[in-house]
Amino acid sequence: MADQRILVFIPAYRCASQVTRVLDQFDDSVRRWVDTVIVVDNRSPDNTLDAAIGHARARLPSLRFIGWRNDDNYGLGGSHKAAFRYAIEQGFDYLVVLHGDDQADIRDLVPELERGSHREVDCLMGARFMPGSRLIGYSFVRTLGNRVYNLLFSAVAGRRIYDLGSGLNMYRLAAFQDFYYKTFPDDLTFNYVMLLGSYHAGQRVRFFPISWREEDQVSNVRLFRQAFKVLSLLGGFMVRRGAFLREPLRARPFERYSGQIVYRQEGQQDPARQEVQQDPARQ
């Protein structure tokens, strides 16, 4: 059976000191599964992309790595769209989303890959609020708020939702070829609408527990404004369902979420990764 090519997409904005730690997560246990890592910088005002490129070049020469800069400030959701488009056009089978602020850990995904969970679903979603997850430095108030919103979305979607948008998710790209999510929000609410869209489309969604920590990260979320916006989106979906998902939900429409490859390193074929891809029992 053909190899299953996995692209890890790291959205990055103003996280120069954290993105290098994220890249350090790619030890042998992770690299054996991963084909390519792409850091997508959303026009950061600091040296986020330079830090990522320098770290990959100096510390991870065996990693197949791409440093990408968006042509415009597309927001977190827009960066997702750029990555989905690139992954599909380049023939990858799966896209892993790992946020560049070093709150999630991609090594939490490895047991799921070893079990073959990704081949049984369309969306494999990391969850901070399910049995087996670990929260480090996350406030009680934010934890409570997330749990309440998870219950509200579960009631509307008719499915048990353990997290609306963590920093670690995996998607089977065959289910996302038609780019139906192009008009979804480009901001931080993209993940919420994307999850509702997946359920509405009848996609198979599964959650798995992850670890999550808050240390020196800088949040770009205005909590109360975000909370009301999320409720508005949920209400729109509850009333209009598919018609709501087909509406233009972006504040600013972009015809194409384009960018430039600033740096590329081919890396070296990892024997452990090659063994994983060629083992018929794992295909």
Rank of each mutant, 00 (worst) to 15 (best):
F254T: 00
A272C: 08
Q217S: 13
V262C: 14
M238K: 15
M238G: 04
R57K: 14
N220R: 08
M125S: 10
S29M: 04
H55W: 07
L124W: 11
P11K: 09
I161S: 06
E266F: 12
S232M: 09
R107V: 06
P45M: 03
K81F: 05
F65K: 05
L233T: 05
D72N: 10
F140M: 09
C123M: 15
D71K: 11
S133I: 06
H99Y: 11
H99V: 01
A227T: 10
S79M: 03
A157Y: 09
L223R: 08
K229G: 04
D28V: 10
I136T: 11
M170V: 07
S29P: 00
V156Q: 06
M238H: 12
A201Q: 15
V156H: 12
G78H: 01
F26T: 03
Y257N: 02
Y149A: 12
V34N: 02
R160I: 08
L164P: 01
L109W: 04
D24V: 05
A58N: 08
P45I: 02
R225D: 10
S133K: 07
V40L: 10
P271R: 06
A227F: 11
R159W: 12
Q278L: 07
F92C: 02
L168T: 00
A281H: 13
L63M: 15
D101P: 05
D102N: 15
T183N: 12
L173N: 06
P111C: 15
R69N: 13
F224W: 10
F9L: 13
E120C: 14
F153T: 06
D216K: 11
R172C: 05
L109S: 03
S258A: 14
F65Q: 06
I6G: 06
P45W: 05
D163W: 04
P280M: 08
N70G: 03
R264A: 13
G116T: 11
Y13A: 08
Q18N: 12
L135G: 03
R85A: 12
L234F: 05
I136V: 12
A227M: 09
L152M: 15
V218K: 13
A227L: 07
R119P: 04
Q283N: 13
V148I: 15
S79F: 02
I66P: 00
Y263S: 15
Q226W: 11
V141Q: 07
A251G: 10
T48S: 06
F228R: 15
V96A: 04
N169H: 14
N70V: 04
A16F: 05
F224H: 09
R31H: 00
N42L: 00
D3I: 01
R69D: 13
Q18C: 07
